[in-house]
Design a protein around this nucleic acid. Sequence first.
DNA 1: CGAGTTTGACCAGCGC
DNA 2: GCGCTGGTCAAACTCG
Length: 192
Amino acid sequence: MEYPAGNPNPTHSFHLDENFDPFGLEQLSDYFLPGDGFGLDDTAMETMAASSWSERAHQDANASGISHATECKRRENELRKKKVQRGSRVAFRTKSELEVMDDGYKWRKYGKKSVKNSPNPRNYYRCSVVGCPVKKRVERDRDDFSYVITTYEGVHNHNHNNETTASFSSSSNLCYYYADRASNCSNSSSSS
DNA sequence: CGAGTTTGACCAGCGC
DNA sequence: GCGCTGGTCAAACTCG
């Protein structure tokens, strides 16, 4: 399947992990929104994330000392807002010891931030090519530290640097959110 | 010496 | 208005 707005990570083929829900529905909706060109509609998104969404809402409600219903309501409102604030974003979840994987582009780090509810810091990178608007965020999965979540934002306006693409090994277990829910997440799919 | 990284400061958005 | 949080800036620093 082709990435409709340009593949931000050209060294890999794409696979959907239907069980992958690193953030909960409210975060999922931040990446894949109806109208983004990914083909996900509201029903698909909600089906994908419903179980963990409810579970996490329950946990957060307990932590905040509010009712589950109130927390669900709050999340639904958040979801609606984020559907408006759409951008060209795509998230990869990769099993890797390395946090920064070679995706064929040259990145410059511009920030590091500890994030709420995660023991691991989030690193911010932007494409080092002058004039290229693409950014990416890299962080460890808060539920499974062996996974790295890489979020790309924007589309490169230049070709990727092919001579640097060889180093990302095929040992990774790459999962990718995509609209094609019939696909499965599969192991070692590097296509470099 | 230039390119890239680190890291504290700053800012904007949001909820209360 | 205030505090919290995520995102960015930029000066200092490191490295090749």
